[in-house]
Computed example of a mutant assay.
Amino acid sequence: MAFVLELKTSSSQDYIKNYIISIIREHGIKASVHKEAGKIVCALASGHKDLQGCVDAIARRLPASCFLTGSAHYETKEEPQSLPSYEIRYPLGLGLCPSCQKEIFDPSSRRYYYPFTPAATAQDSTDFLRAFPMSARTPLLSSFRPAGSASLR
């Protein structure tokens, strides 16, 4: 049997689907995920001990997106096949953390709809702008020289 989660989306891009696949892989659940006619369909093995943890992680970590317009879930007798393969081309921590989302979308917050809201608890993933994968040799500010420095790194 499988637990099926359908997410309605208006986006033709695969980044939301790939993000969900990555979360499912972290939990080691047998699943199949595909896109069809305006929705992403995720079938997860309903007998897995960490199914609830995986669904909670998807709900907690999936970035707020104007392209996600609704959801539905149900059980089916069919077993999920396998996750599709894809090449990871970007880090997974690019979405806003729940704390930042709450602050940005709260009309009473002074940071309401302010796009550069950083949370003290959020990880800084801006180094990916310089090079990916991130490393100490490719920091975001490496193009700036300290005062009095004659050479760049």
Rank of each mutant, 00 (worst) to 15 (best):
S65N: 09
D106H: 00
S143M: 07
L7H: 03
L140M: 12
A131C: 09
V41S: 12
L7G: 01
C54E: 10
P115H: 12
R61K: 07
H27M: 02
D14F: 07
K30E: 14
F132S: 09
E103V: 11
L129F: 13
A150W: 06
I29Q: 04
L5E: 11
S108H: 05
I88V: 14
S142Y: 01
P84M: 13
G148H: 08
G70M: 13
E103L: 05
E36F: 05
C97K: 05
K17P: 06
C54L: 08
Y86R: 03
L44M: 14
C66S: 13
G148R: 09
Y74Q: 10
P63I: 08
S149Y: 10
Y15V: 06
C100R: 00
H48N: 14
I20N: 01
S71A: 15
A64G: 11
Y114N: 07
L140S: 04
F116M: 06
I40F: 04
L141P: 00
E26S: 12
D127Y: 02
Y15A: 05
F67Y: 08
K30W: 02
I58K: 07
A37H: 01
C42G: 11
A122E: 14
L62W: 01
Q81G: 15
I58E: 12
Y74K: 14
L51E: 14
L5D: 06
S142W: 02
S135I: 09
A43R: 13
S135F: 05
L141T: 12
F132W: 15
S125A: 12
C97M: 04
I40H: 07
Q52A: 15
Y74W: 10
Q13R: 14
M1Q: 03
R145M: 11
T117W: 00
V33M: 10
C97Q: 06
S135W: 06
I21W: 03
R145Q: 12
N18W: 10
I58P: 05
S32T: 15
T138M: 00
S46Y: 14
S149E: 15
A119E: 15
F128K: 07
F105H: 10
D124Y: 08
K17T: 14
P146I: 09
A136Q: 11
A37Y: 00
D124V: 08
L92F: 07
A59P: 00
F116H: 06
L83E: 00
E6V: 13
P84Y: 14
N18R: 15
A43K: 11
P63A: 07
G47N: 08
D14G: 01
A119F: 02
L44H: 06
P84L: 11
P91T: 10
S125L: 09
P98E: 08
S82R: 04
E79S: 13
A37P: 00
G38N: 05
L96M: 14
K77D: 15
S109P: 03
H34V: 03
Q101K: 02
K77A: 14
R61L: 05
I16R: 08
A122G: 13
S85R: 09
D127A: 10
L7A: 03
G28F: 03
T121E: 15
F128C: 15
R130V: 10
I29V: 12
V33C: 15
G28L: 06
L92D: 12
L96D: 12
S135Q: 05
